[in-house]
């Protein structure tokens, strides 16, 4: 476990920094969940009916996709610890593929809504009343912000995969891989709450 003695490295500090960033992310989404709960409380009926229009099968499949992708990136850390570079790369590749699959599903899901003229600012949606406008406003904003996190996570993981390929991340120095994993798990964590709140509780 010796790196070049001259280069200062502090993995714990690096991980702590990542966690601090994740805390701000939790508070960002936490704030949105507060907005959601209040609007839901004040427009119970409209939220109930609007949530029925979301596809539970697609939501469930996307949840499972994210859970598997979280598992594969967690396993890639074990692989690098066991000095199995190829397996680590394969597992990251699967993670990236699953992340893209999630986005493709999201594209079709949003596409369906937009085809029915349901999107923020749509005149058709405005006719359906305040509750629907609020529900779909929050739905598009929160799943959109989440999808943005997925895209950022995918770019992050791609960079990490290249670094592993070039031996910049090694079995004795893999804190960056751990940090990208933490970010990806957070994205998964947020979806764990988004899914029941928008799709299931009707």
């Amino acid at each position: 476990m010796n790196s070049t003695p001259k280069i200062h490295r502090d993995d714990l500090a690096s991980k702590t920094g990542m966690w601090f960033f994740l805390f701000t992310e939790m508070l960002l989404f936490g704030g949105l969940f507060i907005v959601y709960s209040v609007y839901r409380f004040r427009n119970a009926e409209a939220f109930h009916l609007a949530a029925h229009e979301l596809s539970i099968p697609i939501g469930t499949i996307n949840t499972i996709i994210l859970l598997i992708s979280s598992t594969t990136i967690a396993m890639s850390i074990t692989a690098i610890q066991k000095k199995n570079k190829n397996l680590a790369l394969i597992l990251l590749g699967i993670t990236i593929f699953l992340g893209l699959a999630f986005l493709v599903n999201k594209y079709f899901e949003w596409g369906e809504h937009i085809k029915e003229h349901i999107y923020p600012g749509s005149a058709v949606l405005a006719l359906r009343g305040q509750g629907d406008v609020l529900f779909y406003g929050l739905y598009f904003f929160m799943t959109g912000l989440h999808a943005l996190h997925i895209i950022i996570g995918l770019v992050f993981i791609c960079v990490i995969a290249v670094k592993i390929y070039r031996d910049k991340i090694r079995p004795d120095n893999y804190v960056l891989l751990e940090n990208s994993g933490l970010y990806w798990h957070l994205v998964d964590l947020i979806w764990i709450f988004l899914f029941p709140l928008f799709y299931l509780i009707t």
Partner: peptide
Amino acid sequence: MENEKNHIIPYRTFLYVLALLITLTITSV
């Protein structure tokens, strides 16, 4: 630098947790 305690979680553990998470997802649906 001795930064890591190097705790290695076996692959199996992750697969068990995944199975549990998927079961819980289906249960909640």
